[in-house]
Amino acid sequence: MAANRRIRNLFLAPAIIYLLFMSIYPLIYSLYLSTTRKNLSRPYQKGFIGFDNYSNLITNDLFRTAIENTIVLAVASILIELIIAFFIARLFVAISDVPGSSIIRTVFILPMMLTPVVSGLLWSYILSPSLGIANHILRELGQAPYPWLASSDTALKSVIMINVWQWSPFLMLLMLAGLMSIPREQYEAAAMDGANILQVVRHIEMPFLRNVVLIGIIFRVIDNFRLFDIIYVTTRGGPGSATEVVTMYAYREMFGFFNVGYGSAAAVLILIMANIVTLVLNRFIRGEEGNVR
């Protein structure tokens, strides 16, 4: 018995050591740093300051704007992605027997395979006021060109559009898998009962998709809290603070100013916020699972 326990511990040890060094230690060190004034390029600036970094962050207007923008970005992106993904997934189910549909499906998921930096650069060119195709089309239509990424009215909307373009395929794939797993008999029974399309969606497809979609939403919430590359490439958080998000804020403090203490506090707050949202969604999923049982 004791020998079995030893062997079991031996097998668990690598995973525990890995977690300790790669996850637990950085987290604890980050928590410690967040209570200091440490700055990498100013070694003389250090010392324990308790929760000052956190109180400074919470009272900082720019950080609050960054949180608001992150929430708007996440909610708007995910909602639009869900709608687009659902309709496209249904379309792919409908044309699944048509020859060549797998090629169209592959083309649709291509944006997801690009790195965010590349998609950011691509859209910077497309939306460029002087060189971009978007404004070229506007000019051809007799309209004045528009500074999509340079106007505080449209910069965040443009970033949301790029985000949606890149990540709708992810939710679409999840939904496609969910829709494909619905037994055909259910559709046939619904048709015999005279159900219309909305009733089919509501009473057959939605229950099947619910858990898959919720897991997809959790992934997308985490992704949106981490979204950085697209904004770094297209707007750098500007103009003004129009596209400032929490990752951009933390990045600038950490790697622009090397305020690792203050930057760590921002990172810890981001972690807490992402965890709260994930926990709420997880609870929701578990609740739904309980209801199903």
Binding site: S128, P129, S130, A144, P145, Y146, P147, L149, A150, S151, S152, T235, G238, P239
Partner: peptide, 19 residues
């Protein structure tokens, strides 16, 4: 200044003149 000026940095500033 040209449309989209709010996103202009060193490279773009020079390119606008060179073009």
């Amino acid at each position: 200044v040209p449309i989209g000026a709010e996103n202009v940095a060193w490279d773009e500033r020079a390119t606008l003149f060179a073009t």
